[in-house]
Design a protein around this nucleic acid. Structure first.
Length: 433
RNA sequence: GUGACCGUAGUUCAGUCGGUAGAGCGCCAGAUUGUGAUUCUGGUUGUCGUGGGUUCGAGCCCCAUCGGUCACCCCA
């Protein structure tokens, strides 16, 4: 029976065309990270499931994790996210390294999901984390993420960073509204749907959950907040002595303004994020394209992740940016360069058998001067050489025919300009050094 | 996990009322014995996703199953 040629569901084969795009994207990620003095790291593909049990979200553990029991009866998972791994690594060395600690990585992750647009089972995710920097870290991570997306040619017209703070959310839910935890979760599910529902129905459902008219009103007022000015007024109105608790969020936005990021960032009370380890600022970067409204990146501050390793608290701020939604984003705004063909410098060919030796040595010399060179195997007619070089997108073709061989010459044709010259082989090589 | 649509040549797709399987692109060769994006000529290509059912007869109808795409959910 024949085996299937298609890759496992939700995974991809990266043919050279796709690999060029991937390399282009990964290179930008590394370049921008290093401009901000972030260092590369990586961890294992497998981790013990326990690592995720403590602080990742319920859905991620129960429904989305790939796990198995190894020969030593250990419960093992393919990493579904990188943050627990970084935290584990940082927990080993944080006492002895200079802080803040800035690290980035581009791991492949797997989640058992039903594949669809912008979401697969195996994907690569850019991760950057900064430890021990407090609010400066939040500003820097978002500044760097903006820079990264800008490096692909995008501007504030294409994307925005939506920001919230779990401390503010907790203040509203526990102090101002006074709800039990399971009710707050229900309320939040509703927030996400707010834009898709009509306002009256939304109000009714809020009332149903809070079972209290005045609490429902506070909640509705909260979800309609759109600026830091609104936040201050809102908190002053209901609990003036809690203003200190929203001060970090307010000052964060002030810093963004100072950094010239005002047109990229926006307060949005609906951003909560599913991962349980976030304790402070949370954010998601959204595509503004009306047909591709989705998060391409997400992150936030987590203060307590090192405690699961019995280490003292060390605040981290991290971001994860998926390569799959990033490609959708670039595609939706026409920002994806054409990688359908390779970029190669020279095809070296010969028309007669006597050309083999000079062709081989010319190819070798050109490689030594740093050019990408392919030697055409066997003698061939010009027509074949040229149509082949066209398909493989060579910049130039060098070839040896009877006439060239007589005079130690080579014919070099520039395929883009459609110009050609006959030149002494020695002279040609000299010119390329 | 729920729902919708789709599976035919390497690829993109057509296939009427159920009656022996088609086109474009690609690939190979030639027109053109030393010049590539055009043109022309010839050639190459199938377990119609898989299994079962209905029928004299199924690519087409029915059931199941697998796969793909998309939406919901959630997120990167």
């Amino acid at each position: 029976m024949a085996l299937s040629k298609t890759p496992y569901r939700g995974t991809r084969d990266f043919f050279p065309t796709e690999m060029r795009l991937r390399n282009y994207i990964f290179k930008k990620m590394a370049e921008v990270s290093e401009l901000f003095a972030y260092e590369p790291y990586d961890g294992p593909l497998l981790e013990e499931v326990e690592l995720y049990l403590a602080k990742s979200g319920e859905e991620l553990i129960n429904d989305q994790i790939y796990s198995f029991t190894d020969r030593g009866d250990r419960h093992v998972a393919i990493r579904p996210e990188m943050t627990p791994t970084v935290a584990r690594m940082v927990a080993q060395i944080h006492r002895e390294v200079a802080k803040p600690l800035r690290w980035y990585s581009i791991p492949n992750l797997m989640r058992y999901e039903k594949p669809q647009k912008g979401r697969l089972r195996e994907f690569w995710q850019y991760n950057a984390d900064i430890f021990g920097a407090g609010q400066y870290g939040e500003v820097e991570i978002i500044q760097m993420a903006v820079k990264l997306i800008q490096s692909f040619g995008a501007t504030h017209e294409h994307f925005e960073v939506l920001i919230n703070d779990r401390r503010f959310v907790d203040l509203v839910f526990t102090k101002l509204i006074g709800l039990e935890e399971n009710l707050t979760k229900k309320l939040y599910k509703l927030v996400d749907k707010k834009n898709k529902m009509d306002p009256a129905k939304f109000s009714n459902e809020v009332k149903a959950i809070t079972s209290d008219e005045s609490k429902a009103l506070i909640f509705e007022e909260f979800v309609s907040l759109i600026s830091t000015g609104d936040i201050t007024k809102f908190v002053t109105k209901y609990s003036a002595d809690s203003l200190a608790e929203v001060a970090p969020l307010i000052s964060l936005f002030e810093k963004f303004t100072e950094q010239g990021l005002a047109e990229y960032v926006k307060f949005d009370p609906s951003i909560v994020r599913g991962l349980d380890y976030y304790t402070g600022v949370v954010f998601e970067i959204f595509d503004k394209h009306p047909e591709n409204r989705r998060a391409i990146a997400g992150g936030g501050s987590y203060a307590n992740l090192l405690q699961i390793f019995n280490e003292p608290a060390l605040e981290g701020v991290g971001i994860g940016l998926g390569e799959v939604p990033l490609k959708e984003f670039l595609h939706s705004h026409n920002l994806s360069p054409d990688f359908s063909k390779p970029e190669l410098d020279y095809l070296v060919a010969y028309l007669v058998p006597e050309g083999e030796k000079p062709a081989m040595s010319l190819a070798q010399s050109l490689r030594e001067s740093g050019h990408k060179v392919e030697l055409y195997f066997g003698e061939a007619k010009p027509k074949k050489i040229f149509s082949y070089s066209e398909k493989k997108n060579f910049a130039s073709v060098c070839f040896f025919g009877e006439e060239e061989l007589k005079n130690d010459e080579v014919k070099v044709k520039d395929l883009k300009r459609r110009t050609e010259q006959t030149i002494k082989v020695k002279e040609f090589i000299e010119g390329k050094r």
